[in-house]
Amino acid sequence: MIEVKDLRKGFGNVEVLKGISTTFHPGKTNLIIGQSGAGKTVFLKSLIGLHHPESGSIAFDGRLNTNFSIEEKRQWRQEIGMVFQGSALFDSQTVEENVMFPLKMFTNQTQSEMLDRVNFVLDRVNLKQSNHRFPAELSGGMQKRVAIARAIVMKPKYLFCDEPNSGLDPQTAIVIDNLIQEITEEYQITTVINTHDMNSVMEIGEKIIFLKDGIKEWEGSSEEMFKTDNEAVVNFVYSSNLFKKVRQAYLNETNL
């Protein structure tokens, strides 16, 4: 579980996060949504320690990440898996080397043990025959799957995904969404996804946080999102006619 309390972060005179508090539970896919510039990426990067918040606290299963010793911080880092927006695969390494890299760096496993684990996670993300291909030889969807495989190879407790569907066709995006949700439930990982893909929100959003101008404007489940009368959420989520109709159909069906 990740507990965030009154998180604030700014750059120069611009305050990007203005006191965000929330909780992310294990085994659930938590989604952060909001317009571009709302502070989603800064929030996510603050959670994983790439940005240092000015005030507030982030506790990982009760451990405040600001109080970590160097050794605790190293240990905590190994509990984190991250899928970056552009996949961030090491382009000089093959798929196998990319996925094996954290194992080589942080474990004392033999080559065959590491290879077994790599093949297992690649199989898990449906990428069996691509071990010796380089990232540049893969499609966007395949790169995302390799990034997921690399993120879960160390059996993380927390999985963070920054726009995992950006640049993907709708069909592949659903495959990636479902994969993340399955992995989250299977390994009871605390997953936090930063997205503005409304299909993802509808499909896998078990807990959704809506950010607006650095403030948590709303939070709830995808079902609660259909019912909400929060103007900012309604304007953002149901901006397209299709989603307006979907919402109306839901409300009619449930007689709300």
């Binding site: 790439l50 880092r77 961030a88 695969l89």
Partner: peptide, 17 residues
């Protein structure tokens, strides 16, 4: 520089490297 702008350096940092 390319590793920086494609977030490969961030990926290393997140891993604790």
């Amino acid at each position: 520089g390319t590793m920086r702008v494609t977030e490969q350096i961030d990926a290393l940092e997140v891993m604790g490297i």
